[in-house]
Design a protein around this nucleic acid. Structure first.
Lengths: 199, 199
DNA sequence: CGCGGGTTTGATGATGCTCAAGCCCGGTGG
DNA sequence: CCACCGGGCTTGAGCATCATCAAACCCGCG
């Protein structure tokens, strides 16, 4: 495993948290020291449904998919996390409950991990980080509300166009059927939507 | 306006926040003093789309509906808040952004309001309240994720049954077409679903 | 060269919407 | 006391959307 030098590795995540509060270099260093760097090959599970989620991960590089599967095999992709995103099942992580989600890398990925212990330590030492995480969850919630609304009210073509607009770089990186799974379509139907669109 | 005595009025909300941390009587009193009590008749708007949300409200009594409407007139009810629920557009409230939501009472209601100022004061004085609000938002997020999944993957009948199970007291209190709006159905279709179910 | 995963295509059917009409019931005015 | 009105719920016919299933295609890789 080859480690890049620290400035490289932490540049992204530090910029990310600086958007939610102002931290000194010293505080950032304390934060960075709590993070665990990990390289993960593609197609590996970070979390299985039924397990308790033990991490909150920042994606330095790569692509991760978070999704549900129910007893009948029906699937929905909750989101794709690429560079500068966080991934976790927050509810499972914080409340030690079995998760309902699967989390899986789609590409070879580099992650920075917080555990419950290091997160608690961080919050205790630098309470302003409470704000960082609260804002993250709030934005998440607002986005999800909007998505639910779109899911219920808009047509298939609109959904697909909205997706392209919101996540322009994703379609180049992930297989089409994953995007179908995000949109709540069958792969066949997404294919037909695209055909209608590009002619 | 008739005011109940304080123990009545604050009993619910104090029990509510005690579930997320342990507060002394003195701290609770400080908290209660920041709350603004308000009685609101039914069919009044607490928030219009486009406005900035200025409150976070705890429902002491009554029923409030939170919903989206888009340019085409398509509507989705995000949730109903009855006794012991909180209502707000958190994103708008915290980030001073115009809201995309409508919030409207369906019954005469009694509310306890926090403003941005009183909330900041509260968090500054009793930092443990950060935890209360973070947990609230996280649960909210987890619920919404589950709901999105159900919305995409389950049949109409299942959706309705899930709703009845999750919110058994709501159908007695709100008109059927509001429930249709929650489920993403037309009122006509919900009626047909119910007929299939009860025979 | 052939295999296998992913994507496309088409035929068919189920699901849920639209529109139009009728019904139920509580409230209001004659 | 009755007639009427209006909002909400129900019913039905017809239609659009999207899933299912089966087959073919495409292309990178062993």
């Amino acid at each position: 495993m080859i480690r890049k030098d620290d400035s490289d590795k932490f540049a992204g995540i530090n910029a990310n948290v600086q958007k939610c509060g102002i931290f000194s270099d010293k505080e950032l260093q304390f934060f960075n020291n709590l993070l665990q760097y990990k390289e993960v090959p593609k197609k590996t599970f970070l979390l299985h449904q039924g397990e308790i989620c033990r991490f909150e991960a920042y994606v330095v590089k790569g692509c991760v998919r978070v999704y549900f599967i129910d007893a009948q095999g029906a699937e929905l992709t909750l989101y794709f996390a690429v560079e500068d995103w966080w991934v976790s099942d927050i509810a499972s992580f914080q409340e030690h409950k079995p998760s309902t989600l699967f989390i899986e890398t789609l590409e070879d990925s580099e992650l920075l991990l917080l555990t419950l212990e290091t997160k608690e330590l961080l919050l205790k030492e630098i309470p302003l980080f409470e704000r960082v995480f609260r804002l993250m969850v709030q934005r998440n919630l607002a986005n999800l509300q909007e998505r639910l609304f779109q899911t219920v009210t808009t047509s298939a073509v609109e959904k697909y166009l909205n997706f392209l607009e919101r996540y322009p770089n994703i379609p180049n990186r992930v297989a089409q059927h994953y995007i179908a799974s995000y949109l709540g379509f069958t792969p066949e139907f997404l294919s037909k939507v695209r055909r209608r669109l590009y002619k």
